[in-house]
């Protein structure tokens, strides 16, 4: 019983982190119909930047975000404007795949292939609630995810940019007709997506050791999350992330790590077979 509670609690925390990591992917897909395979590679690029700023200048990992977030936003806008726009969905997958390889190769060359990690003393302790032990780093990660996602939703729902973005997602032609500059909005949307990768990368650096090829393990997981959530739906992805995080946590404590990860693929397969539009709405999966 304790074991199950432990698995459930950890799964919930991890699910929150997954929601943050997958948010960008949903955003790219919603705005651009781009399956951004390179998103996890950029997550780890951010993790390495955090590592460098931490070891080089003694910055607290969380304090690196004011540097990495604007940087990634700019990079995202640039990527969209210069190379991704105008590609059909299939070609954009291959292109972002190429980007992922490029980033991985550069990380491997600069930082070598060995594991790196950022460990802070506040992150190594655990919070004990009865028999359940929750590591502080996971709790910090969870709250950063919650705050970032809340900010993201506020941006999407409340701001003028958010309205333009949602209009672009739902009906590009109509959005153009009412004066939304869809190309520019798409660029900023991509920038916001990559900015979430900067936050996610920082958090990853805090909670897990990493090496340049780490992103491969994440591609499948995050893809599964956005498909289960309904491609293009940011909220659906967040819900799916929590669901899969909890499932993973429970299988992890009852069976083993391999089966816990395989759950992602099982959910992906079942979703595609029974409900290709995703568990939480989204009507586009079938076409793209």
């Amino acid at each position: 019983m304790t074991l199950l509670l432990q698995g459930l609690a950890l799964g919930l925390l991890t699910g929150g982190l997954y929601a943050l990591l997958a948010a960008g992917l949903s955003l790219y897909f919603g705005v651009m119909r781009v399956v951004m395979v390179a998103h996890p590679a950029f997550l780890f690029l951010a993790a390495y930047l955090t590592y460098s700023l931490h070891t080089g200048f003694g910055l607290d990992p969380l304090a690196t975000m004011p540097i990495t977030v604007p940087l990634f936003f700019g990079l995202g806008v640039l990527l969209q404007r210069v190379i991704i726009r105008g590609l059909d969905p299939m070609m954009s997958v291959l292109l972002t795949f190429g980007l992922a390889l490029t980033v991985e190769g550069l990380l491997g060359t600069i930082y070598t292939g060995s594991y790196k990690s950022v460990s802070m003393d506040y992150a190594t302790r655990s919070l004990s609630l009865g028999e359940v032990h929750l590591p502080y780093d996971k709790i910090i990660a969870f709250w950063i995810a919650v705050i970032t996602l809340t900010a993201l939703f506020a941006l999407l729902v409340k701001s003028r940019f958010g309205r333009a973005l949602r209009a672009t997602v739902q009906h590009p032609e109509a959005a153009r007709l009412v004066g939304v500059r869809t190309e520019r909005v798409a660029g900023y949307g991509f920038g916001v997506g990559l900015a979430t990768a900067a936050v996610g990368g920082t958090v990853l650096a805090l909670v897990t050791p990493f090496f340049p090829a780490s992103h491969w393990a994440w591609i499948g997981k995050l893809m599964a999350i956005i498909v289960v959530g309904g491609l293009g739906s940011v909220l659906g992805a967040a819900l799916a992330a929590i669901l899969l995080g909890v499932v993973e946590g429970l299988v992890l404590v009852t069976v083993d790590a391999t089966w816990a990860t395989l759950m992602f693929y099982a959910f992906l397969l079942v979703t595609l077979l029974l409900r290709p539009q995703g568990l939480f709405g989204g009507r586009l999966a079938h076409r793209f």
């Binding site: 399956v35 391999t258 990860t261 992906l268």
Partner: peptide, 29 residues
């Protein structure tokens, strides 16, 4: 039979997932 039910980019995702799952199994078993 399952994979070709989806098209385009979704199909690519399925194939990536397939190889990742196989990799996991081969390492785990």
């Amino acid at each position: 039979v399952a994979a070709v039910r989806v098209r385009g980019a979704s199909f690519v995702i399925v194939t990536i997932a397939l190889v990742s799952a196989m990799n996991l199994l081969a390492q785990g078993w």
